[in-house]
Amino acid sequence: MEPFTVLTAVAAPLVRDNIDTDAIIPSREMKTVAKSGLAQGLFAGWRYREIGSREPDPSFVLNDAAYAGARILLGGVNFGCGSSREHAVWALADFGFRAIIAKSFSPIFQANCVRNGVAPIELGAEAVDRLARAVAADPARRPVTVDMIACTIAVADAEALPFAIDPQARRMLIEALDAIDLTLELEPEIAAFRERDRKARPWVYL
């Protein structure tokens, strides 16, 4: 995982509410038992003209040349709702996205982002709409900067907006920490807790 500190990149607006993980990566595009190689399937239902085809639908934002190389995605309310499939984050990351700025997130999706080094940033509804408008005026020349250290977002040289993020998520992103490694350091404490618990609730331990 790459540390996430400061990212300046083209941002693609897809500011619809309740974009579900079936839309982010349809089940039919999850073809292998692997976390990689999912970029092709990202938003397949909207990106291509027909189900199963690879002919781009020109009306979809990610097929617009102005947003080529986008690494930031702008979303609406409850982004990533529905299925818990982590493939949604893997597909976004595989496509190149490192940050999602949305009005709100589904909790499972948000946690999945952090585990994969993708920054899920919640901003007020108006701020997201304003950001989307500012970007759309000239996407390539109005890149967005996400500063995880300062917790700010800025479009081109406009004034930076502050954002709030779960401090633990922020630290994990900045330091590219692996949660399993961190928890394994606590193994003695976990073992002692389980030992005590086993006496209180023996039926739990099969």
Binding site: E86, I108, A111, N112, R115, D166, T183, L184, E187, I190
Partner: peptide
């Protein structure tokens, strides 16, 4: 509750999850 795949690895490896 439902979790992602990486969190599932965490749960399997440590019998815990980190959650708010």
């Amino acid at each position: 509750w439902g979790i992602g795949s990486t969190e599932t690895e965490h749960a399997l490896a440590t019998s815990t999850v980190r959650a708010r």
